[in-house]
Design a protein around this nucleic acid. Structure first.
Length: 199
DNA sequence: TGGACGATCCCCT
DNA sequence: GGGGATCGTCCAT
């Protein structure tokens, strides 16, 4: 499999969001390789009131305005990170939020990264099915945080591998999750019936 | 300088 | 289904 080329990211954002389904996210950390398959995404576009870029560039969202193919990581709710793939040409301010992935390789590291997160975790996060089924969870599992903000996905620390295109019948679209505005756009994409979809 | 608010997660009812 | 945790960011004073 080959790395997704820059041109992949320079297409319309909802298209990129849909085409990211099934691709492999590769994370190299301390000589170990973590691999996860993307199963759920959301597109955030120009003139989109739900997008961080809607009110212009700030220190927080400046990476979102960089050239497509970079990683935009933001901190939210005082405790969580979320990871986005920047799309389009520099200055556009569009990106795709990675909402859920399926662990493929390095699962032991991912489990460790999310273990002991809370002392009072009574259900136990050792369950693979809930390891990476949410945007903040997958960041924990893959060790994505402030340091990874702005990384080039054509580099060697974090990148995306191509995979055979999914059939249209395997993909579903819906409205986005957790937003207060921009609720009509159907810019959430996911693999139909996939066990790792977020709740 | 302060206060309101999150592209969430987890636990409890 | 609802609320608490928890803090960086942004904008209004």
């Amino acid at each position: 499999m080959t790395k997704l080329p820059r041109s992949f990211y320079l297409r319309p954002t909802p298209r990129v969001a849909r085409d990211l389904l099934g691709k492999y996210l590769v994370r190299l950390i301390r000589k170990r390789v973590l691999v996860a398959r993307i199963v759920e995404t959301e597109a955030y576009c120009q003139n989109d009131p739900a997008s961080h870029s809607y009110r212009g560039m700030t220190k927080r969202n400046e990476v979102m305005f960089s050239q497509g193919g970079h990683l935009y990581v933001y901190f939210t709710y005082g405790m969580h990170f979320c990871a986005n793939v920047v799309t389009g040409r520099a200055g556009k301010g569009e990106a795709v939020l990675l909402r859920a992935v399926q662990p493929i390789e390095g699962t032991d590291i991912m489990l460790r990264n999310r273990k002991h997160r809370r002392e009072s975790n009574r259900r136990g996060d050792a369950d693979l099915l809930i390891l990476t089924n949410g945007p903040a969870k997958l960041c924990q599992a893959l060790s994505i945080g402030r340091r990874e903000n702005g990384m080039d996905l054509l580099g060697d620390e974090i990148y995306l591998l191509d995979s055979p295109k999914l059939l249209p019948s395997e993909i579903a679209a819906s409205t986005r999750i957790g937003i207060r505005v921009g609720k009509t756009a159907r810019w959430r994409f996911f693999i139909k019936g996939h066990p790792w979809i977020s709740r």
